[in-house]
């Protein structure tokens, strides 16, 4: 390769490198830098270097630990529900398309609508639906003879209410991925399975799930990241309460960084979230993809 060609190669890559440095690497280094200080932008005293104290404090902070527990719970529950429901619905759409039923395309488009709404907006909509005295949810329950539920006001229910809304919004996404995966399976495989006498459950277990697992993995990874930074919905509906029953890692970081302006402490929390996210993603990739394939 001539010298000119090598230079041109770097020139073409340069914008991407600049972008990466400015928007990813620099903020990350800056976050690392302030995470070891007492920086608070709403206090008159200058920041001091305190080493890893913020990280040590965080691991002893009961609210942070609760936020971590809530985030894991919310992530696991939401993703499981989204995947199961998404796969079932995708299968219906898949079958409908194979049978060339009319209106399947339109129904699929309508089904995607929740995903297209801003979380803040649907958070507000659900806030009205779940309003304990004026909301539709309790009205419907009363028609069935059930007592009203304090959807966001009870420590036992609030987190499940958030999971419910989360699942409502993101099931279409999992459905879409599953449907895309199912569409790539050669029809001959189903034909052969049918001839061999395989039932629908065997078809799912031995043909569909193994062949769509990579697509599912991508979906799961995206949703794990999403749930780790889930903020808008919690902020609008419960503010992390009642008590700390719906406090998530993002909510905790926001509270520290933008309500109390303990920016150093907040930065340390966000670094821990980042590390946890990376670890989880790695575990997921290795367990689903397999070591050899991954390598």
């Amino acid at each position: 390769m001539s010298k000119n060609a090598r230079v041109i190669k770097y020139v073409f890559v340069l914008p991407a490198i600049i972008y990466l440095i400015l928007l990813t690497i620099y903020p990350l280094i800056y976050s690392l830098k302030i995470s070891v200080t007492t920086l608070n932008i709403a206090r008159p005293y200058p920041p001091q270097y305190i080493g890893l104290s913020n990280f040590v404090e965080l691991l002893k902070d009961s609210i942070f630990l609760t936020a971590m527990k809530n985030t894991f719970f919310l992530t696991v529950l939401s993703i499981c529900a989204e995947f199961i429901l998404g796969f079932i619905i995708a299968r219906f759409f898949f079958m409908g398309a194979n049978l060339k039923l009319k209106g399947v395309g339109l129904l699929r488009t309508i089904y995607m609508l929740p995903m297209m709404v801003t979380p803040l907006v649907f958070g507000l909509i659900w806030l009205y639906i779940f309003n304990p005295t004026l909301g539709v949810a309790n009205y419907l329950l009363s028609l069935l003879g059930f007592p009203p539920i304090s959807w966001f006001g009870s420590t036992n229910i609030a987190l499940y209410s958030i999971v419910l809304i989360n699942v409502w919004e993101w099931t279409p996404f999992m459905m879409l991925l599953c449907l895309a995966g199912l569409s790539t399976i050669p029809p001959e495989l189903f034909e052969v399975a049918r001839i061999d006498g395989a039932g629908w459950h065997q078809s799912i277990a031995f043909i569909e799930l193994p062949l769509v697992r990579r697509v599912i993995l991508i979906g799961l990874m995206i949703r794990i990241m999403d749930n780790f930074r889930l903020f808008d919905l919690v902020y609008v509906t419960t503010g992390g309460g009642p008590g700390s029953s719906t406090e998530t890692l993002s909510m905790f970081t926001y509270r520290q960084s933008f309500m109390f302006f303990n920016v150093g402490y907040g930065a340390a929390a966000s670094i821990i979230i980042l590390i946890l996210g990376i670890i989880l993603a790695q575990i997921l990739i290795k367990s689903v993809w397999g070591k050899e394939e991954y390598a």
Binding site: P44, T155, G241, P242, G243, S244, S245, R255, M259, F260
Partner: peptide, 30 residues
């Protein structure tokens, strides 16, 4: 200057006591 954090902290622990996560005594202690 610390008012916002103080008010929020008391709010958090009072809310925990109302929700039954902590007793009134434990909430105020924390």
């Amino acid at each position: 200057p610390e008012s916002f954090e103080i008010i929020d902290t008391i709010g958090l622990y009072t809310s925990k006591a109302v929700g039954g996560e902590l007793t009134a005594e434990k909430a105020m202690e924390e």
